[in-house]
Amino acid sequence: MCPKPKRKYTTVSIPRTLFTKIKARIEDTGFSSVSDYVTYVLREIFAEEVQQSTEKAFSSEDEKRVKERLRALGYLD
């Protein structure tokens, strides 16, 4: 018995007018469908948002220990 394969795609609704506008916009571009374009743009925006959030920095103990090693190896004065 095979497990039912998970569907890779799902549907998001956008206004038909926007769909039509995008469809016209992507003619003769590398985008083969409105879905491709929307996926691309959303990934781009999402990545920018992630980029702007602050990542947990390293601890001060880490920093002290690593800097000592970097000095010993000659990477820092």
Binding site: D62, K67, L70, L73, G74, Y75, L76
Partner: peptide, 17 residues
């Protein structure tokens, strides 16, 4: 070993620089 750095090392190095 003297030229082996991992991401934590380089991140601290770049930040310090």
């Amino acid at each position: 070993a003297e030229v082996t750095l991992y991401p934590l090392d380089t991140r601290i190095l770049f930040k310090t620089k």
